[in-house]
């Protein structure tokens, strides 16, 4: 029985992989989920775009140290990135009522130039299958999720921008680490 299951699993897995390779249909970011901008306005995720260029979508929270390290590290190179590639960062905070009103002062206090939203009910977090923060996505010009990653350490921002450049050149990065 166990053997049978394992082989069935292997078979299905290979079918799954074959299927994925043939189709290569990336999931897209959800359309109609509401998040709040920092001035309290409700914004639909259908407005998440970067004029046909890729953008980075990063989930974070005020209490998440690696998230703050990621956003602070990128801050130092963000201007350079934008000049070089035109990439944009959308940072989505999953803070609840305890810290949601501290998000805007924190964003400004840290001098971040990102587009920031608050996903207080975590609708977007659930729809995008985010388990832990930081969780970072690269979205291509068509709104497709071409790459995603959890966790951050200093230095991984360089990998991130290299991947964005590849996406701009139309390369497939789904197998990249």
């Amino acid at each position: 029985m166990k053997k049978l299951l394992v082989s069935a699993f292997a078979l299905l897995l290979s079918v799954g992989i074959l299927n994925a390779q043939e189709a290569k249909n990336y999931p897209t970011i959800p359309d109609n989920i509401s998040v709040k901008s920092l001035d309290g306005t409700t914004v639909q995720t259908s407005t998440f775009h970067n004029d046909g260029k890729p953008f980075i979508l990063s989930f974070w929270a005020t209490w998440c140290k690696p998230c703050l390290r990621e956003l602070n590290t990128i801050k130092e190179v963000y201007e350079e990135w934008q000049e070089e590639t035109g990439v944009k960062i959308i940072a989505v905070s999953i803070d609840d009522a305890r810290a949601a009103s501290r998000v805007k002062p924190m964003v400004n206090g840290n001098a971040w130039d990102y587009e920031v939203y608050i996903d207080q009910n975590q609708d977007l977090k659930r729809a995008m299958n985010v388990v832990n923060v930081p969780h970072t996505f690269i979205i291509n010009g068509k709104g497709e999720i071409v790459w995603q990653h959890t966790s951050f350490v200093e230095g991984s921002e360089e990998e991130l921008i290299e991947l964005v450049k590849k996406v701009m050149n139309g390369e497939d990065i789904s197998e990249s680490k």
Partner: peptide, 17 residues
Amino acid sequence: LFVSASYSKKGLGINLQ
């Protein structure tokens, strides 16, 4: 009752609750 007031500009953020 919950009240929160904030002032922030680039480089400075203040929040009172």
